[in-house]
């Protein structure tokens, strides 16, 4: 039954749209479709972005921990290397601070009426990903894009037995970090 739904391409396009509508609704309600709130985070004045991300991480992580042994969910860990993550990540960050949106929140920003996101940002991201596609073969040759021993590696596969003994402590640490943020007045 579940396999049939997952393999039905037409239905998956409709589901993608529905999940996107819910995601966009939540991003807008969370305020992260707003440039000022994202920049507030990057200027360390407002921690809305981190609060949303970390709460989502806790729920997703614990959910995977509980459901994975039942076979209902599978991991989809990305390939890559520390080099890709660090160099690409820092470059992404510079763009993130300059544009003031990221690929998901920019779509939400456009939906709530931000023209700078639509005309400057979205077109810029499409151009940027296009430039990367053109450079990809060369970057692989020059070993700027690589795969290392961390590629597709998840700590979920490193724990023996029930993964909750790893994920619950991580969730507690993240939770305590958010409590400290609240106490500190953010």
């Amino acid at each position: 039954m579940l396999e049939e739904i997952r393999n039905n391409k037409g239905m998956q396009l409709v589901l993608g749209l529905i999940f996107g509508i819910i995601f966009g609704f939540l991003l807008q309600k969370g305020g992260v479709s707003n440039y000022d709130i994202i920049l507030g985070q990057l200027r360390l004045q407002d921690f809305t972005v981190l609060k949303i991300m970390l709460s989502a991480v806790i729920v997703t992580m614990i959910g995977i921990s509980i459901l994975r042994p039942t076979g209902l969910v599978k991991l989809h860990v990305k390939e890559g290397s520390l080099k890709n993550s660090i160099l690409g990540g820092l470059l992404f960050g510079v763009g993130f601070g300059t544009l003031g949106y990221c690929p998901g929140t920019i779509a939400a920003a456009v939906g709530s009426g931000n023209l700078d996101g639509l005309i400057g940002g979205m077109i810029g991201i499409i151009i940027g990903t296009g430039i990367f596609a053109s450079m990809y073969s060369k970057m692989r040759e020059k070993k700027l894009v690589t795969e290392d021993r961390f590629s597709k590696v998840s700590l979920f596969d490193k724990v023996e037995g029930n993964s909750l003994k790893l994920t619950v402590p991580i969730a507690v640490v993240i939770f305590l970090f958010m409590v400290i943020l609240e106490i500190a007045g953010f």
Partner: peptide, 9 residues
Amino acid sequence: GGITLGIGA
């Protein structure tokens, strides 16, 4: 910013 972010992403 968008171009930089796109390449980095």
